[in-house]
């Protein structure tokens, strides 16, 4: 099956068209966030404050890249394990219009319910293929939370980032093919 080319930002129609098992090549802007950044974003939402970035239609990549060597855009940049974001993702999906997440490993039923209800997609990037993945990142800048070091929110521009639709918004989950709706 040939990968299909897709790009950010996403709308409901683009998310709905994607099915679990499809290979995609993603281009456009994605934002990085790990546990610490998720916690800050959700605290802001809980306190009714505005976020330092607009997540409406956006894609979040769960990654803490290694530092860029001279002459490189970014260091190695593979996905971190996604379940650690499970407590936060439903809040972001419901409150911000977040449309896509990129990580590795299964997600909770609560995340999947929020994905189905609000049309959001979950892509798996290949864990541990971090040097290879870095070749698809053409631009990288720290957007906010610089004090978190590798956990800062970065704004990445990606070109043909190879991903797999692991959980779609129709209830199909490649980690549990037997349980999918």
């Amino acid at each position: 099956m040939k990968p299909i080319k897709i790009h950010t930002p996403f709308d409901d129609a683009a998310v709905t068209a994607l099915k679990a098992g499809q290979q995609v090549l993603l281009s456009g802007i994605v934002y990085t966030a790990r546990d610490a950044a998720h916690k800050r974003l959700c605290n802001l939402i809980a306190n009714g404050q505005s976020l330092p970035l607009d997540l409406n239609g956006a894609a979040l990549y769960f990654v803490g890249p290694s530092p860029a060597k001279p002459g490189y855009v970014i260091g190695s940049a593979g996905p971190t394990t996604s379940y650690r974001m499970d407590a936060y993702s439903p809040i972001l999906i419901e409150q911000t219009g977040l449309k896509a997440m990129i990580g590795k490993g299964d997600r909770s039923p609560e995340v999947q319910n929020a994905m189905q209800k609000h049309r959001c997609i979950y892509f798996a990037a290949t864990g541990g293929a971090a040097a290879l993945i870095s070749k698809s990142i053409v631009k990288c800048e720290v957007l906010c939370y610089d004090d978190l070091g590798p956990e800062a929110i970065h704004r990445l521009e990606v070109k043909d980032l190879p991903l797999l639709v692991a959980i779609d918004c129709h209830g199909h989950n490649l980690y549990h093919p037997e349980k999918s709706n």
Binding site: S66, K69, G75, T80, G128, A129, A131, L132, P150, P162
Partner: peptide, 24 residues
């Protein structure tokens, strides 16, 4: 496909002196 990516990744890391995984 995933195993091919891991093998290719190891070659890139060794040749370009990049971390195999971002989590060092």
């Amino acid at each position: 496909m995933f195993l091919d990516q891991c093998i290719e990744n190891a070659a890139i890391a060794a040749t370009e002196r990049l971390p195999i995984c971002q989590d060092t």
